[in-house]
Design a protein around this nucleic acid. Structure first.
Lengths: 261, 261
DNA sequence: CGTCTTTTTGAATACTGTCAATTTAAGTGG
DNA sequence: CCACTTAAATTGACAGTATTCAAAAAGACG
């Protein structure tokens, strides 16, 4: 069965209070991962039934974040790992000269903040690109829980490794693709992620600006805009500001394969 | 006291056999991390005295790898995390069209293979850029050990997070710097790493070709070569093939700060 | 309704890539 | 030991792509 947008927004049962002092976590409640509609995509991803049940011992808070609001800043003390419940976020870091570089976009079920484990503070900040809701998972508590169940122990490691692999593919994108290939790769990736969440794979709304896409893909906003126009003229897409309709998915994919020389 | 090249090559005491079946790990022996001259840089990095002693329970094999030989291939089953004892490696992955993209260079004390945790097989391959020696740490065994000592449990997580942070900075390099800034950043990074290993920070030998540097930095080998020449003409460097001498470290750093506009 | 932000598009410039030739170094084998 | 082959690095000339600067159009928001 394919999930739709409504399913993703469905209410979840909350049962117990979590004693979290951080004022930014406004709704400290307990939810069960096994009951969550995002369990296939989120933290429990790849876990067997037994392990997911053990995950239910995990306490975490929930919080709403409005469009444009930061969830955490670069340099903040690392305390929580965040899972997106609804909405979209960008991760970004500020360069010496003040501009910021977008390092990722995050949709429902995806995790943020794993880069904070290394230094004890967040290496990048996260900002909501639309009204959103997150689960804040206390990192220490997650560790205590996994210490008790040794085979759950790999959980965080696997998730981090996944992040490393994700960044590898971004590196090869930035290192060896031209503007059209980058945007095609970006759109195809978005399309897949929308599909995995029960949305249409061919028609969706971009939550990020041209400048943010450009920052992520290593190109200027004008080049992003021009490339969108070029795809439209070739009949691959219909673009109306942030509304995207993919007309020729195979054609877009070919824009990537063409990179053979 | 500053370590020199000879110190890095110093012999280490081996005491017991490790039952590893993988034929590629030719010298399965036990070494103690606490006795290793690389302990400040390698796996035990940032650990307290007590924890380092616990790490001595860790069993791992050693292996020599000759110039040009692969340590592991992309797609190989993930079984070990590798620590460089001596020599230099590159990590790379093969694109659809057959070319490969370099994702990192690894020097003594640095870890490789962490990207394999996610999928159970290596997402990138590693190749020796000079005759080298490594420690092969069985990942499962590392987990067992850290399950017994709960505060050692963060070890791998921290190391992976460090890798994520490292890739962040490479992303911003690829996403927002021009050729000169990229090469300057690369050389300054190398210089720091050489210094941390007791070598000269201003004069060293590159173990990678122009093409490999280019692949890593997202530029063509000709551009790498031209940029080296430009730096030399400006009196920042002396370049003779792979031998580098940094004449004006501050000037090179300025090449990065110049990126203010 | 006006202001501000985002997006699109054009024209000129700057930068990097491509192709090609040359030099240098490192092996290889007679 | 020398001629030969192969690989790596440098350099020039030119083409192609992305950036910069500038202007206009289209929404979004109060």
């Amino acid at each position: 069965m394919i999930m739709n947008a409504a399913t993703l927004e469905a209410p979840v049962t909350f049962t117990r209070q979590l004693p979290v002092r951080d004022i930014r976590v406004a709704a400290p409640l307990k939810t069960q991962c096994s009951a969550c509609h995002l369990k296939e995509l989120c933290l429990p991803c790849g876990m067997t039934g037994d392990d997911v049940v053990r995950l239910d011992g995990l306490l975490f808070g929930r919080r709403k974040v409005k469009l444009g609001q930061p969830l955490y800043h670069e340099g903040d003390r690392f305390q929580y790992i965040y899972a997106v419940r609804s909405g979209t976020f960008k991760s970004s870091l500020t360069l010496q000269d003040g501009r910021d570089q977008v390092t990722g976009f995050h949709m429902a079920g995806e995790l943020m903040g794993l880069d904070g484990v290394a230094q004890g503070h967040h290496a990048s900040g996260a900002t909501a690109l639309e009204d959103a809701e997150i689960c804040a998972i206390p990192y220490e508590h997650l560790n205590e829980l996994s210490a008790a169940h040794s085979n759950m122990h790999h959980l965080v490691s696997r998730l981090m490794s996944r992040e490393i692999v994700r960044e590898h593919s971004l590196m090869m994108l930035l290192g060896s693709m031209n503007a059209e290939e980058r945007l095609a790769a970006f759109l195809l990736n978005l399309s897949q992620r929308m599909k995995a969440r029960g949305y249409s794979a061919s028609e969706f709304h971009l939550r990020m600006s041209r400048a943010e896409i450009g920052s992520y893909l290593g190109m200027k906003l004008e080049t992003v805009s021009r490339t969108f126009s070029a795809f439209q003229q070739r009949g691959l897409l219909e673009v109306d500001k942030r509304h995207i309709r993919i007309l020729d998915l195979a054609g877009l994919s070919r824009a990537l394969d063409m990179r053979i020389h």
